[in-house]
């Protein structure tokens, strides 16, 4: 077996006195779609942000494709070209059309020409089903459409790894489906992705592994079947029971 695509060893992060991540270690192989779950404040977002260094880790090592990326020798902007991110609050560039949102990184980071960038962006928008919204501005799109543009924007950079930070949490319930569908397709196509979400439907059907994070610890990890049906830890069972119930009631 080749090197894992992502290897995290003893990752540690504190904000002031509060230790948010305590000795996190795990690996992801290429093509894995791992789902990160855990109560709010458990450090899920911080973990994602440490991977593309929007937050600098305090300790431990992160390797992407066998290279140490968490050290000061690895340029953050180079790292972020390799790692795409999708945000809870979407954060589309409000003054740019859907097309321009996608081409900005292609032109200004990858140095692509106008035409090549637009062709690439159009292909990416087609992939998320928004080719007919290319000229729309973010404020003219629904939340679900905005988030699909957000996904296209990150995908266009051809990242090795995609990070999803609660991509559906800010959306109305009826709009989450379209985003989840795009993510499922992406997973099926073999994109390596690490997803923080409460969408248990996605976890069940698309996840390679589920990682349960609580209080800064990686409490348990395993295939979704195992975590849902036969978790080792009582805390995992309890959390999944609560979240499944909430989902059934439609409160998430």
């Amino acid at each position: 077996m080749s090197d894992p695509l992502l290897r995290i060893e003893h990752l540690q992060k504190s904000y002031g006195d509060e230790e948010v991540l305590k000795d996190i270690s795990f690996e992801m192989d290429e093509g894995d779609a791992d789902v990160l779950i855990g109560p709010s404040g458990s450090g899920k977002s911080t973990l994602l942000r440490c991977i593309n260094r929007l937050t600098e880790p305090d300790g431990g090592d992160i390797y992407l494709d066998g290279e140490l990326t968490s050290g000061p020798d690895y340029d953050v902007n180079d790292l972020r070209r390799e790692v795409g991110m999708v945000f809870q609050d979407i954060n589309l560039f409000a003054h740019l059309t859907a097309m321009e949102n996608v081409t900005l990184g292609l032109k200004r980071v990858l140095g692509m020409g106008e035409e090549a960038a637009e062709a690439k962006a159009m292909a990416q928008l087609e992939q998320v089903g928004l080719e007919n919204k290319a000229e729309s501005y973010p404020a003219e799109l629904s939340g679900g459409q905005q988030q699909r543009v957000g996904i296209a924007r990150a995908l266009a950079m051809d990242p090795k790894l995609m990070l999803f930070d609660e991509p559906t949490s800010s959306l109305d319930p009826e709009l989450t489906g379209e985003v989840v569908t795009v993510m499922k397709n992406l997973a099926a196509e073999g994109m390596t992705m690490l997803v923080v979400t409460h969408e248990m439907g996605f976890a069940r059907s698309a996840a390679t592994q589920m990682l349960f994070l609580e209080g800064g610890y990686l409490v348990e990890q395993g295939p979704p079947g195992q975590l849902f049906d036969d978790p080792e830890k009582e805390r995992t069972r309890e959390f999944l029971r609560r979240i499944t119930e909430a989902e059934a009631e439609g409160t998430i």
Binding site: F87, N91, A94, L104
Partner: peptide, 28 residues
């Protein structure tokens, strides 16, 4: 008044801080 998340999103694409300000924040 420009939402800081947009700057972060720009940085997450690999834009430098100054480029993210120039292409994302300033035009707005």
């Amino acid at each position: 008044s420009v939402d800081r998340g947009q700057l972060v999103a720009g940085r997450s694409l690999g834009l430098s801080q100054i480029d993210a300000i120039r292409y994302v924040v300033l035009p707005q």
